[in-house]
Design a protein around this nucleic acid. Structure first.
Lengths: 198, 198
DNA sequence: GCCCGTAGCTTACCATCAGTAGGTTACTTG
DNA sequence: CAAGTAACCTACTGATGGTAAGCTACGGGC
């Protein structure tokens, strides 16, 4: 089997085993066995266990960027950009739920390069959000980078929460985030679910 | 040395080693050596490597609950409760920065019980926030539990961001979160940094 | 036909580290 | 002093990440 095909197959199996057992409990021997190949092949192609994880994350990252930025580009105003981007994000995680949670929450433990890779996922989303917002807020009264950081972190948690509450759709999750960070919590207290005076 | 003292000493050293090396790279042999004791003692008192990590997290969790709930109790209205609670939270993480980031981001990888423990930290903060808000919003138009989840996740990320930007004080971080989730991003677009008409 | 380089792959091994069995020291209690 | 127990140790096992060395098959040049 040619290298490229074998690599794809290995990453597919690895993603599955990592999701099933968790990174620490997953063994390279088991991954190799399920692929139907010997362990040194994994090391030949990915260097290390961490390298294999990094490859899995990187693939997911490219896909995530693709769907979210496409959703933003297809929208006309900043509010819709944020909303549609959020929907695409929650949809992506729903589609990859079996592996995303593990990949996301476990990468930090592994080592520098995997931690960097998962940070890159967040950085990618942070840049996308703050970059888009910057187009519409020339002189922001607060740092859009750190604001985007809060949004990304909040969405990450909410996505995990949604997995425990499957009745919540990606659109529901996106609306909740919009309500919170777009309109603000103050509107709840002033009994104005949909305030009209800013 | 009596057991209770030795346990405290072990947890202190473990927190340090986990923070330095990361959970996976930290070895029980090294922790034992730094404590000046043999490895079986660690297992006698904590059962497993994961058990040792869980003990560290649990201790930090109790302390976090103490400082944040105290800050909320000392405040008069929901806005100040949220703000002062946030300040206490960011201050706590700043004080424990060397270990908090690692403890927090690595627990999930370890296994069920450590993951549960770190989830309990978030649950604790989520309950504190949603419980407090519920007192002031009898019939919320959105689920306060999931809203609190977003806030907790956002703060977690922002806390890590603040570690890379030490010029940001706990009060600054708290204000940023307040601006975002209390007043909403829409106010940025309408050029009203400090809106007064709700 | 034959040599040779290389890609894909294997067996058999090493080192490290979580976890354990069993024993020793020393202090307390009767 | 005997007995029990808490604190502690040495020395081991098993699993697993990672590696060394070599095997097989294929393709191109002579």
């Amino acid at each position: 089997m040619p290298r490229a095909d074998r690599e794809r197959q290995m990453m597919s199996v690895a993603e599955q085993v990592f999701a099933e057992r968790g990174y620490v409990a997953a063994s390279m021997d088991e991954i190799a066995e399920r692929v139907g190949v010997s362990k040194p092949m994994l090391y030949e192609y990915f260097g290390s266990k961490e390298g294999l994880l990094v490859a899995c994350i990187r693939q997911a990252r490219a896909e995530l960027l693709r769907v979210t930025s496409q959703a933003a580009v297809d929208s006309g105003n900043p509010e819709d950009m944020l909303r549609n981007g959020l929907i695409a994000y929650f949809q992506f995680i729903k589609d990859h739920s079996r592996s995303w949670a593990l990949l996301c929450s476990e990468a930090a433990v592994v080592g520098p390069s995997a931690a960097e890779e998962i940070e890159a996922v967040r950085q990618q989303q942070t840049d996308l959000i703050s970059g888009t917002m910057a187009l519409y807020v020339p002189q922001p009264p607060l740092d859009l980078t750190s604001a985007a950081e809060v949004i990304v972190g909040g969405c990450e948690r909410l996505a995990l929460w949604c997995q425990r509450h499957p009745e919540t759709s990606p659109a529901d999750a996106a609306e909740l985030v919009m309500q919170l960070i777009w309109f603000g919590m103050r509107s709840l207290l002033t009994e104005q679910p949909s305030p009209g005076q800013g």
